[in-house]
Simulated scan of single mutants.
Amino acid sequence: MSETGVDALPAHPLLKNDYASEWLGIELLKVDDGHATITMKLRQEMLNGFGIAHGGMIFAFADTAFALACNPHTGSADTITVASGVDINFLKPGIPGRTLTAVADRRQQQGRSGIYDIQIFQSVPGAEDEVLAEFRGRSRTVPKPS
């Protein structure tokens, strides 16, 4: 088992060789068809020069939830689903040491194209979690690269 506990994650073929998610320390809480919930702790090496979460770290975290929701947890022999475009809105600064949670949900699926919304929450000591960012992903299912 790795230091981050990634080896203990519930089975999802996408995580088998996902070294970025392992480095982020992502934990998979729930995955269903069109849905994923993940968490991670905001560590010092994820901060920018202002001492708050680097936007790229928040984006990568949300992108992992997006990928998990897009791709079946049973795997696919022939196809993968990837981002065709995304938008992210940062609403609050990410505070070091807090736990982040991303909740990804499919909104629409038409043929090979889909739309997913991902909310990123931040824990707040003694209060309810707050929305840190909103991410909307557009997906496209394509043949697996050979």
Rank of each mutant, 00 (worst) to 15 (best):
S2R: 15
E3T: 13
T4K: 09
V6R: 13
D7M: 13
D7F: 13
A8H: 15
L9P: 12
L9V: 13
P10Q: 12
P13M: 09
L14I: 12
L15S: 14
L15E: 09
K16L: 14
K16D: 15
N17H: 15
D18F: 08
D18G: 00
Y19F: 12
E22L: 05
E22P: 00
W23I: 13
W23M: 14
I26D: 08
L28V: 15
L29H: 14
L29T: 06
K30I: 12
V31N: 12
V31W: 05
T37N: 02
I38T: 04
I38F: 04
I38W: 05
T39C: 11
M40H: 03
M40R: 02
K41Y: 01
K41N: 07
L42V: 01
R43V: 09
E45K: 04
E45V: 08
L47T: 05
G49I: 10
G49C: 08
F50K: 10
A53K: 00
H54I: 00
G55L: 03
I58K: 08
F59D: 05
A60T: 13
A60P: 00
A60M: 05
D63F: 07
D63G: 07
T64C: 15
A65M: 09
F66M: 07
A67Q: 10
A69M: 07
A69E: 08
C70P: 07
C70M: 11
C70Q: 09
C70I: 03
N71Y: 03
T74R: 12
D78P: 03
A83E: 02
A83D: 04
S84D: 05
S84A: 12
S84I: 04
G85V: 03
G85R: 08
V86T: 13
K92Q: 10
P93K: 07
G94W: 08
I95Y: 01
I95D: 01
I95C: 01
P96W: 00
P96Y: 00
G97P: 00
R98A: 09
T99F: 01
L100D: 04
T101R: 13
A102C: 08
V103S: 00
V103F: 04
R107G: 14
Q108V: 12
Q109G: 05
Q110F: 04
R112C: 01
R112M: 04
S113C: 06
G114Y: 08
I115H: 09
I115Q: 11
D117K: 06
D117S: 07
D117T: 12
I118T: 11
Q119G: 10
I120M: 06
F121S: 06
F121P: 04
F121T: 11
Q122V: 06
Q122K: 02
Q122L: 02
P125L: 00
G126E: 02
G126N: 01
E128P: 08
D129K: 11
E130R: 12
L132E: 02
F135P: 09
R136A: 00
R140M: 14
T141F: 01
V142D: 06
K144C: 06
P145E: 11
S146K: 10
S146H: 11
